[in-house]
Design a protein around this nucleic acid. Sequence first.
DNA 1: CGGAAACTTGAAACCTTTCAAGAGTCGTGG
DNA 2: CCACGACTCTTGAAAGGTTTCAAGTTTCCG
Lengths: 241, 241
Amino acid sequence: MTSSRPLPLGAKPRITCDACHLSKLCIPKGLTQEEVDSLSRIVRRNRTLAKGTVLYQHGEWHHGILALKTGTAKLVSLDRQGNEYLVDFILPGDILGFDGFSTQRHSCSAVALETVSYCEIPAHQIEILTREIPGLLQVLLQYSGTQFDLSVQRLVLSRRSAEERLAAFLAHLSERYRQRGFSPTEFRLSMTRQEIGNYLGLAPETVSRLLGQFEASGLIDVQSKLIRILDMHGILSYCPA
Amino acid sequence: MTSSRPLPLGAKPRITCDACHLSKLCIPKGLTQEEVDSLSRIVRRNRTLAKGTVLYQHGEWHHGILALKTGTAKLVSLDRQGNEYLVDFILPGDILGFDGFSTQRHSCSAVALETVSYCEIPAHQIEILTREIPGLLQVLLQYSGTQFDLSVQRLVLSRRSAEERLAAFLAHLSERYRQRGFSPTEFRLSMTRQEIGNYLGLAPETVSRLLGQFEASGLIDVQSKLIRILDMHGILSYCPA
DNA sequence: CGGAAACTTGAAACCTTTCAAGAGTCGTGG
DNA sequence: CCACGACTCTTGAAAGGTTTCAAGTTTCCG
């Protein structure tokens, strides 16, 4: 899967979009070969940030569209009192930056949960790119639609019991890892129990208790951050929608 | 405010987009005069539906973008068991149809809460319109961003107490009526307590109790569906974010 | 005017949170 | 390499807010 083409002298590896193993999930998904080439010339690549640092922050001017390549991140909203609200967990291949289209300023902050690398389409280029790549705004609009659908799914989930919410969280994470070529039954949680609870609208203690309960039921195996799903069918039987 | 230009013979009143009193809220918001004229030629106008009927239904092919002109509607999602989840209340000037961009099929249903009239940009025209109206997809993308921000606000709200949720609901509704030129302090709820509860994640009994409590505190006056806000400052003092 | 649906109000039940204390994990520096 | 300290996680018991159940009242529409 890794590119075998010679690299430019003295440069860090610069994978073009169509050689990127995430192109099935990322923006190129809906574009023609020609459009992908065009996109590839604009995208800023290989930005890397350490765990805990900010990709962009609430209130900043809209950076543009970011595509996570490696690592994981969290998207959070803050209220006046400084409370954090976990809007989403970002996995490799995910797009972020939709929180900047409305006001031109980011309404959320994106924070690396592990060392991350990502690509970026600068906001000021998006309008220009639209002309060069007719499919791009269509793709972006489709992504927005997906975001909408996800927010609805989350709404549905928020009405369910704590058990169902956590089960759905694990099932969703598992499915997303599967789509990315990782094991769907064994993965490491890059977020704390606190952050899972914040995401699901539960106290961290509740998350801990339920993970213990799922383990006692033989559904999963928990070793601190490491999760092994033993009975996927059992997990799914909890899930609504 | 009503158009004084002569109407086409034998036609129902056909207000063009730039003569529409909702153009400050609707799609034309971000477009040039020329673009609005272009849009106005495509838009299907004056569709009317009675209370309780469906504007579009879950599973149907994406109709396109709808702009509500008069009346109110609800946007709902249904799970397998047929439970209804209230995604949004739609007021005149609001745009709907974002639930169809991802899969090309509607993930939600839109139902009239009162007699409604609306305009429509058919889905199959959107791509074509993009070329004629360069600003359109930008506008749509900005709307999507707004939808995203609203879903985040709603997430924040869902973490607060029942009191705060209902207060924020009333404040938000008041603000939206104000933007539309209606009284922000006196309005008729077109939805049932059940639907408010469904929207806020509360039992209808809780909604009823809290309205009674707000009334007893002198914040509002309730006469079945008619709400009069007596102390807006008091209401706002409950609101987070 | 009549009946169904919507709304209100009370009391008990329940799920989740909060508070508290102890155990485990991780990274850092001696 | 081990020890320390901070942070995270786990587990128990009590508290609390919201739901559920139930019954009566009001509103609305045919």
